[in-house]
Amino acid sequence: MEPIASLSGIAQGYGRHQVITGLDWDLPVGVYGLLGPNGAGKSTLLRTLATVTPPQEGTLEICGRKVHSERSARAARTTIGYLPQEFGYYPSFSVYDFVRYSAWLRGVPHGQAHDATRKAIASVLLDERAQATMKSLSGGMLRRAGIAAAIVGSPRLLLLDEPTVGLDPKQRLEFRELIRSLTDSAIVLSTHLVEDVAAVCDQVVVMQSGRFLFRGTPEALADNARSGVAGDSPLERGYMAALSGQGALS
């Protein structure tokens, strides 16, 4: 299957501090869970995939086109939806304004922006609060508005950094449904919640110190579990085993 995004020999860092080193990764359609401890380089990897931070080394391709310049990055961004870990908003914007602004940023044509915005808001079940101001939303609702802003215009590559933080259990189930319904995109979920990965991801990547420690299906990660490793579920134990170097890079 043709990859939607492709990384080859990607290195990234700030000054002399190397955050990710020599990563290769092809992402065809599917849902990818990105697991790893704090500081593993997950957010940096997502920012690189979102073309926000140009890679120091290596090549990045989005939808078959090499991203190597400002122009190519801006062209690629029409196909990328990105929810940063923390996003700002203009407090007086309504949810509709916020998502529509995101649609405009993404280059969704004005003729389609209204419908795309309505659809995205409905997907995160915020249609009843569409005209509410952003400052009046609760933490969970804000997160859902952020997800709507990321998925508006049906991007081919969807990058979600900690999307389920602040969502209640019911909302998390609904979020998983939403992710399952996006069958035409490559979706990368960076998360600390192993059960989200188990529920929706086709592939799991475990990162530490800017390197991939494990790449494979959630089942393969669960199979990695060894006795004596901490964790309440096979997947958690597999994750812990991968972190402690017991899992193989598949």
Binding site: A75, G88, L105
Partner: peptide, 12 residues
Amino acid sequence: SAMDSLEETAAS
């Protein structure tokens, strides 16, 4: 803008 984290990913 308060939304500069989203604007970083803006198209042309």
